[in-house]
């Protein structure tokens, strides 16, 4: 199996889906002639032409509004938001239009829309451009929220996202684009809404997703040197949330640490921990720990920024707390 980068995996998924289905098209800021802010759509403009690779003005509400409209007419738009921070400008279109049209009009129409966007900090982009507000979007029924942590999952999940008839917010991490991994060639599909054990273990369950999967895997390696075997469950999809592998793992280890890049308050960790308490209370042997971003607007200063983001040491410490 070829080892390719996350960027290549996402690019491959888009390319294959556009080749497969002429109703798929992409639109966004600098996705065409420039080839994408993160070079994901490099070469797409030349190959698929300006009809299917549309550069847009810097107007997020317009991008998503237009994409929702296109989806209602039967097209399958893949709209790109340069970062998730700009999604706030398009918030109404995402949560009030895309997420609700199918419900409010009794299923008369579907919105087969994919919004690709980039979340997370760590690149000194300062407080307004470094957020991880994934949980906010996962709050809304009607919107699927996908956030892969490996190239293989990125390809498989993006292809599925393009094919489902619901709006999907597809969250990528800027610091993962260079990460390499084995990715199956051709039609590789991973169903949306399925969590996955990324590392088997017996002593503690680490629940995480996206960029924090990388941090968690490193933490697990460090813990393994002390003889602590962490099992890592990668959520991959925040909505619908697949708790089965989490609960199964937790019933085995009786201890959990949830690692997310966003803030702790009202976050993914809060949701997952509650679900464990609700659904596996009799298996709880220690209070569940959450590792998350410090409750501050993310600093620009490099050192402070790293201090505010969850690090390997934070995860290792939290694991020790629950053991």
């Amino acid at each position: 199996m070829p080892r390719i980068t996350m960027r290549e995996a996402i690019s491959q998924a888009l390319w294959e889906e556009m080749e497969r289905d002429p109703s798929v098209f992409i639109m966004g800021e600098e996705v065409g002639v420039w080839g994408g802010s993160y070079a994901v759509t490099k070469g797409f403009y030349d190959h698929f032409g300006p009809e299917r690779v549309k550069d847009t003005p810097i107007a997020e509400a317009a991008i998503i509004g237009a994409a929702v409209g296109a989806a209602l007419t039967g097209l399958r738009p893949v709209a790109e938001l340069m970062t998730i921070n700009f999604a706030f400008s398009a918030f109404d279109h995402i949560v009030n239009q895309a997420a609700k049209l199918h419900y409010m009009f009794a299923g008369q129409m579907t919105v087969p829309l994919v919004i690709r966007t980039v979340s997370g900090g760590g690149r000194q982009l300062a407080a307004t451009h470094s957020q991880t507000p994934d949980a906010i979007f996962a709050h809304f029924p009607g919107l699927k929220v996908v956030a892969p942590g490996t190239p293989e999952d990125a390809k498989g999940l993006l292809k599925s996202a393009i094919r489902v008839n619901d709006p999907v917010l597809f969250i990528e991490s800027a610091t993962l684009y260079q990460v390499r991994g084995e990715v199956p060639e051709g039609d590789h599909l991973i169903p949306i809404g399925s969590s996955k054990i990324q590392r088997p273990g017996t002593d503690v369950t680490i629940v995480t997703y996206s960029k924090m999967l990388e941090i968690s895997l490193k933490s697990a390696d460090q813990l393994a040197q002390e003889g602590i075997e962490a099992e890592i469950v990668d959520l991959r999809t925040l909505r619908p949330l697949d708790m089965e592998p989490v609960l199964e793992s937790f019933k085995k280890t009786n201890r959990a640490v949830i690692v997310e890049e966003g803030w702790k308050s009202y976050g993914v960790g809060a949701e997952v921990a509650s679900r464990i308490y609700e659904e596996a209370f009799d298996f709880v042997d220690a209070p569940i720990q959450r590792v998350a971003q410090k409750e501050v607007p993310l600093p620009y200063n490099k050192t402070l920024e790293q201090l505010a983001l969850p690090q390997v040491e934070d995860v290792v410490k939290a694991v020790r707390e629950v053991l």
Partner: peptide
């Protein structure tokens, strides 16, 4: 812990006889 409680209930163990070694003396 809830797990210790359910284990004790299943096995008929009087938790008052068990020495807790977890944080704050919690029985785990």
């Amino acid at each position: 812990s809830p797990l210790a409680r359910s284990m004790a209930a299943d096995m008929g163990i009087d938790l008052r006889l068990v020495q807790g070694t977890g944080p704050g003396g919690r029985i785990t």
